[in-house]
Design a protein around this nucleic acid. Structure first.
Lengths: 154, 154
DNA sequence: CGACTATTGCAAACAGCTTGCGACAAGACA
DNA sequence: TGTCTTGTCGCAAGCTGTTTGCAATAGTCG
């Protein structure tokens, strides 16, 4: 997930996840702004989903983006299917990149709220297709979350 | 889910879900109040999870319970593992009864927010045990949610 | 019945999200 | 590069759903 080189409109590394995401955003009409790059960089670098506050208060922002700005970017990116919003156990919404073919299954401590991504083969795929057919819902996706008490809190 | 007879501390029908829930609550130290009975009755009768507002504003309450009261009851019932709080796609928290052996898998429309309970055999059970062992988390449970556009919103 | 203490209702505080508005800046085009 | 158009930004205020302090009330137990 290394993001080293300089990202401008013209210097793009096709292997770089940030470049890919920026391209995708631009294709869909977003302007290339420092705030957009910051938000995407943070989300790509994060191992777990982030909240609006996580991003707005991050010290790794070049430009100290306002929370309203971050909020609007997150909303747009979600609409463009570049990121996904998760409802975890918290009061806050969590955001995470959508990488094709990747799963987002999480293990969350109900006490301290710590989140871990689960690298499991998710057994829900096939079920999802069946539900899509039966329910006539479109654009179906799923969230699988495990909750429990982590060793530290127990 | 019929709840017909009168519920007092002394007249209990062991088949009645409301009686069972009330007994369970009383065993764990809660007092038998009209508000408690109302909240449990609504949750038991509901086919889908309810929000705090759903319950506090319901016209089927005998006592027009204040939202603060409902809030505190829901919090206590959750701690006592009588009900469960779900984070759906909404900003609000949803609550649902915990019935032993029953699954809580939902299909939610991302546009209109309508919730449907899925009656499926959930393939996650076995996975859950494996995760419990590997992660050292205790009191593990899961939530499986499917999101999509319902036919009406599409 | 009487005492003890959980529970209630009200109102105010709170957290996180959302929006209006005027200033600003990215992108397009000459 | 200069100019125009329109998306984006920061600020501050507003909103929604949740949480809490406090004094009054009402279950529960002896």
């Amino acid at each position: 997930m290394a993001v080293k080189h300089h990202h401008t409109r013209d210097s793009r590394d096709p292997e770089c996840l940030l470049c890919q995401a920026l391209d995708r955003a631009r294709e869909r009409g977003l302007r290339m702004t420092p705030a957009l790059e910051d938000v995407l960089r943070l989300l790509i670098a994060a191992a777990v989903p982030l909240t609006l506050a996580d991003i707005a208060k991050s010290r790794h922002l070049s430009s100290k983006a306002d929370q309203a700005t971050v909020y609007r970017l997150l909303t747009k990116l979600e609409k463009l299917a570049i990121i996904r919003r998760l409802g975890l156990h918290d009061r806050a919404a969590y955001y995470t990149m959508i990488f094709p073919g990747e799963h987002n299954d999480y293990l969350v401590c109900t006490e301290c709220g710590k989140i871990a991504r689960l690298d499991i083969e998710c057994p829900v795929e096939e079920l999802e297709e069946r539900i899509a057919k039966k329910s006539k819902f479109t654009q179906l996706y799923h969230e699988l979350m495990f909750f429990g008490l982590c060793p530290k809190c127990a």
